[in-house]
Nucleic acid binder design. Structure first.
Lengths: 155, 155
DNA sequence: TATTGTTATACTCTATAACTATA
DNA sequence: TATAGTTATAGAGTATAACAATA
């Protein structure tokens, strides 16, 4: 038996454990609570994407980055808009499209949310060397690229 | 600005993208279909855990490994039992407990399921050197350990 | 005719609460 | 009184289908 299959037998459960561990620890729920806003987690993800982009984005573009379909984003944006965290403005280049834009309040909420998560991760990884952090980032980035390419082959 | 925060700003979206990419690609759903069984994905996860363990496990132990609560496992096991893929036998050491045991059919289904996923991952990672595979496995393992330890600190 | 977004609905996964049986 | 599991119910997250408006 070659080493490759056994490694995959180990890596796959680890990846599964990673998501399960984060879910069960309710890290993201705690981060949402820290913002003091009665929002669902995907709504905070929308805020985070807009904050990182630092520019208005279309509904479809947000959906792409979240790996979800349009209607899901529409619902989240509605909740965010009703609380004054984002604005929906018409795209001057295309009247069908809507640009979603952070308000000052939305920006502040995104910073609190991202800050809690990053501080928490930084604490959990405080023993890591800069080399190992970079290595993990590089390898995970590559894994995502390769998996995504392979997945689009299936269609 | 130090390199640490910016690295975390990159790693977190990558991890998010990883799970989103796998979900959207429906890799696991395809693997379930490949078994030809009308089961939910978590049920296949139960089969996979029993197969890797290669021994009967308690409901509670399966729940721990899946990072889920007991009732969820109970439901999955019911579906598996009604299709003859597992057997529920009383634990001789404790009459309260139930040991979940793979049948021959269940074992075959688990092998088909795991085989499809592993082949697919092996294809996606075919360009990877043995060193990079081991490195990724090592770093992800460590990440899971550190995150899990930090999460249990919260309680 | 194709694309952007919305509305309405349904499905998957998992949790919580209340309960039973055994320890 | 505590633990293992089950039953019943609820919630979060996301998808699909049908539609409207604009291109």
């Amino acid at each position: 038996m070659s080493a490759v299959p056994s490694l995959l037998r180990d890596l796959l459960p680890r990846l599964n454990e990673l998501s399960g561990s984060l879910r069960r620890g309710k890290l993201f729920e705690r981060a949402v609570e820290a913002t003091g806003l009665p929002l669902e987690r995907p709504a905070m993800t929308v805020l985070g994407i807009l904050h990182i982009e630092d520019a208005p984005l279309r509904v479809g573009e947000i959906a792409n980055r979240m790996n979800v379909v349009g209607p899901h984003v529409t619902r989240q944006v509605q909740g965010l808009e009703s609380r004054g965290l984002v604005r929906r403005v018409a795209d001057p280049d295309d009247q069908r499209a809507r640009l979603i834009e952070l308000t000052a309040e939305g920006k502040a909420a995104a910073e609190r949310y991202i800050g809690v998560i990053e501080d928490w991760f930084a604490g959990a990884m405080s023993d890591w060397t800069a080399e190992d952090r970079q290595l993990l980032d590089r390898l995970v980035t590559r894994l995502v690229e390769d998996l995504t390419a392979r997945l689009s082959d299936l269609d």
